[in-house]
């Protein structure tokens, strides 16, 4: 029972956390990346399509990452080089992603509806030898897919990049006071463009983590996860561990909604609102806590 709940939580958390780690980097560089949703969506389609047609999961994930990074590069180019409003470019990314995925699915697969790839390779659960057989603990720690395990590793790697390497140090300085960074010869442009690319990289994995386990793609299947990831970024206050905590809460909220669907008569549609309401509630709670005296 607890094992099931934890598994659902992790399964729900993984795509959000990947994307949120991506959003964390742009956030540290001083920008809110609204395009996470779109990047995830494009990768969800391209990774599954590639994996199903080549039979290679790795190739699928790589193509997913590349497509998401391409979108991120466009976002970086338009907002940094052409100096467009980064919010609007983010919205454009989302709109473009929702258009292009349906466009491609209609032109490549002949349908705009649900795409199910029967013979796509399985993103199988990994049984950890040794731990697997320990009662309870085995149930809790074993049997997740590779992207679930890797995301925890990614949190640690992000932590090191952000707090221990020059890149992370420079990126944080740009986000806190870009004038100060420029005065010591740091290129704001390079830092921010880089953060977009990293953001695309992680959001790409997030998208793959959404479609590959269920071998299914539906238009708009990200369904607000990019936005929830964005909230996780804000709540995480620039720290990957904070982002992890926030993502776990959202995963648990979704798992709870699933649990109710299975055990109660409440309409599934209404239960689908739970993650959003929980996110909103936490967002409000967070704001109340750090409420400022004046509205500016």
């Amino acid at each position: 029972m607890i094992g099931d709940f934890l598994h659902t939580t992790i399964a729900m958390m993984t795509p959000i956390l990947w994307a949120a780690l991506g959003g964390l980097f742009t956030q540290l560089g001083g920008m809110l990346n609204i395009g996470l949703e779109g990047m995830m969506l494009v990768s969800a389609f391209s990774s599954l399509y590639t994996a199903a047609n080549t039979g290679s999961l790795l190739l699928g994930i790589l193509v997913g990452i590349s497509s998401s990074m391409l979108l991120a590069a466009i976002m970086g180019y338009v907002s940094l080089n052409l100096k467009a409003n980064v919010f609007v470019v983010g919205l454009a990314t989302n709109l473009f992603a929702s258009g292009i995925t349906v466009f491609l699915s209609s032109n490549l697969c002949g349908t705009k509806g649900t795409l199910y790839f029967q013979n796509a390779p399985e993103l199988s659960e990994i049984k950890i030898p040794g731990i697997e057989n320990i009662p309870i603990l085995g149930d809790l720690l074993s049997g997740y897919d590779i992207l679930d395990y890797l995301v925890f590793l990614a949190v640690i790697i992000c932590f090191i990049i952000i707090f221990k390497t020059p890149y992370g140090f420079h990126l944080r300085s740009v986000g806190k006071n870009y004038r100060a960074s420029v005065s010591v010869g740091i290129s704001v442009y390079k830092q921010r463009f880089g953060s977009f690319l990293i953001s695309g990289f992680f959001a790409g994995i997030g998208g793959a983590a959404l479609s590959l386990p269920i071998k299914t793609f539906v238009g708009g299947m990200t369904n607000g996860r990019g936005w929830i990831a964005l909230v996780a970024v804000i709540l995480g206050r620039g720290n990957p561990v904070g982002v992890l905590m926030a993502s776990i809460i959202f995963g648990a909220a979704s798992a709870l909604s699933n649990l109710f669907q299975a055990t109660t008569d409440i309409s599934p549609k209404l239960l689908l609102t739970v993650p959003f309401l929980v996110t909103l509630a936490i967002m409000i709670f967070y704001s109340v806590k750090r409420k400022k005296v004046n509205a500016q």
Binding site: V78, L82, K83, A84, V88, V89, A92, L95, F96
Partner: peptide
């Protein structure tokens, strides 16, 4: 959408 706010 992408380009409408592009100052550059």
């Amino acid at each position: 959408f992408y380009l409408i706010t592009a100052e550059g």
